[in-house]
Design a protein around this nucleic acid. Structure first.
Length: 466
RNA sequence: GGCGCGGUAGCCAAGUGGUAAGGCAGAGGUCUGCAAAACCUUUAUUCACCGGUUCGACUCCGGUCCGCGCCUCCA
């Protein structure tokens, strides 16, 4: 089956093919770096990572740009309160975002694009919009006039035709002609950082950065654009209006949106205060891999309720896969190849990929892996799984882990090295042989305290990191 | 009110017009010097509710109830 994605624009599953058949030009909405990113945000970023990896696995080359919004109201407010420049203030959270992303094994996009490094391009874009009569100025700010873009609402499938200017929505502190108009350039307010430009002294509105940076690096029509569902309106709708008003061309071919991570039945958000950062959860003793597993185990277009019980379940599920991998390495198997098992492996691989191809149905893909693991374990117990079958099994796990990337444990700093652990295991084996079980148990307990679990199997001792 | 999504076992979660994947937890068993481990087996006569279409619906259609999101900054 061909790779298919649900396109928010058409509300249909569509077969995916990049414009040039080879390179996927993808833009993903990244964080606003005014504080630590929470794991609700990371659900979306994790989804983007699964998307990236799946595209790569299908042989496409990626050109992926993610923006970092490093100038915005909350940043300015917090930086001023901290007595820092916005550059100083955002640098720490940008770094934290990069660190956290690495912890969650999110592949870095080909390019991170910072809003503050694209001010001239944004000004230029706004001037082009002005030349096309899509803007108006008021008290030093510049606005996009939505009435000049008849297709406005096509992404969020909202009809604004009956809307009377200012009648339904309170106009905010900036004066707009129509409540749906949005600001492109904000006039400087006292004390705020600003850029001196042909539009006057001020700073860019939020939406324009994505249009400008996406088109600068990826071209006027890009293949994929993603973000959380809360960005569909107004952010992405506005991006379309700006971009298409400038170029007259379709801005994005496939729009993909990730559903929210929920907590106790409500959206995880900073304003509700019901959020956890990655650091919060890791401090409670959960591994990055189990968090990653939890975030990507449900389909991205379904709301996912975050609970610690769920996280424990994710960790346990993951253990099952790791144990199988360990078993492949440790069990002593008879020589030969069981062709039935080889066929089973191929079927599992096909089912796994079929799941991913179906709009990144990770639940379905995972099920294929678990069914295989159960069958393979049964075959191992029955002696039907032969030495020649391990290569295929490892290849399947590698195929799985190229997307999910959860099998290898994160090794904490200060942890024992493999060699140190092996030495202790050998020591314990000696004690066991001498029937010195007290000593053997003591070593096992010491290792356990240092995060290493020993398991005795009929084919010898195996160990794993907790 | 408008737009969108969803209601499947104790919990999480796929799926299909032809009789319910998978994971966690629970129960039983196997292995083991012991074992907290590991592995196997098992767990929904039923898919929110009510009508309709059909040989047959959880899956299609209509309606009802409930939950969530967006409509303002937001992943």
């Amino acid at each position: 089956m061909a790779l298919r994605f649900y396109n928010t624009l058409t509300q249909e599953l569509e077969e995916f093919q990049p414009q040039d058949g080879k390179t996927v030009r993808m833009y993903t909405c990244g964080p606003t770096v005014y504080s630590y990113v929470h794991i609700g945000n990371f659900r979306t970023f994790s989804f983007q990572d699964i998307l990236r990896r799946t595209l790569k696995a299908r042989g496409f080359t990626l050109d992926h740009v993610m923006n970092i919004t490093d100038v915005e109201d909350k940043i300015i407010r917090n930086a001023m309160a901290a007595g820092q420049t916005i550059q100083e203030y955002t640098a720490q959270y940008t770094q934290a975002f990069k660190d956290d992303s690495a912890t969650l094994r999110l592949q870095a996009p080909e390019r991170l694009a910072f809003a503050t490094e694209h001010i001239p391009e944004m000004v230029n874009a706004i001037e082009r919009l002005a030349a096309g009569h899509h803007t108006y100025a008021n008290e030093g700010s510049t606005y996009f006039r939505i009435s000049t873009f008849p297709e406005y609402g096509k992404l969020s499938h909202t009809n604004f035709s009956g809307n009377i200017a200012g009648a339904r929505v309170e106009v905010d502190e900036y004066d707009k002609a129509d409540a749906r108009d949005f600001v492109l350039w904000k006039a400087q307010k006292p004390g705020e950082p600003a850029w001196q430009t042909s539009l006057g002294e001020g700073r860019p509105g939020w939406h324009i950065e994505c249009s400008v940076m996406a088109m600068k690096y990826l071209g006027e029509t890009i293949d994929i654009h993603t973000g959380g569902v809360d960005l569909v309106f107004p952010h992405h709708e506005n991006e379309i209006a700006q971009s298409e008003a400038i170029t007259g061309k379709r801005f994005v071919r496939y729009w993909l949106h990730a559903e929210h991570l929920m907590v106790e039945g409500q959206k995880m958000s900073k304003s509700l205060g019901n959020f956890y950062t990655l650091r919060d959860i890791i401090e409670k003793g959960y591994s990055p891999e189990s968090i990653r597993y939890l975030l990507v185990s449900a389909h991205y277009r379904k709301q996912l309720n975050f609970t610690f019980d769920g996280l424990k379940g994710a960790a346990a599920s993951l253990e099952r896969l790791r144990n199988f991998e360990l078993r492949l390495k440790n069990d002593r198997l008879a020589e030969g190849v069981n062709p039935e098992m080889e066929a089973r492996t191929a079927a599992a691989s096909a089912a796994f990929n079929k799941g991913l191809d179906d709009d990144l149905n990770t639940s379905d893909a995972l099920a294929a892996i678990y069914e295989y693991v159960r069958d393979a374990n049964t075959a191992l117990d029955a002696g039907q799984f032969l030495a020649g079958n391990t290569a295929g099994a490892h290849a399947l796990l590698a195929e799985f882990d190229a997307i999910f990337d959860v099998l290898k444990p994160t090794i904490q700093s200060g942890a024992l090295t493999d060699a140190e652990i092996d030495a202790q295991v050998a020591e314990r084996n000696k004690a066991k042989k001498a029937k010195d079980f007290k000593r053997a148990d003591a070593i096992r307990n010491e290792l356990l305290e240092r995060g290493v679990v020993l398991e005795d199997t009929k084919d010898g001792v195996r160990w794993k990191r907790k």
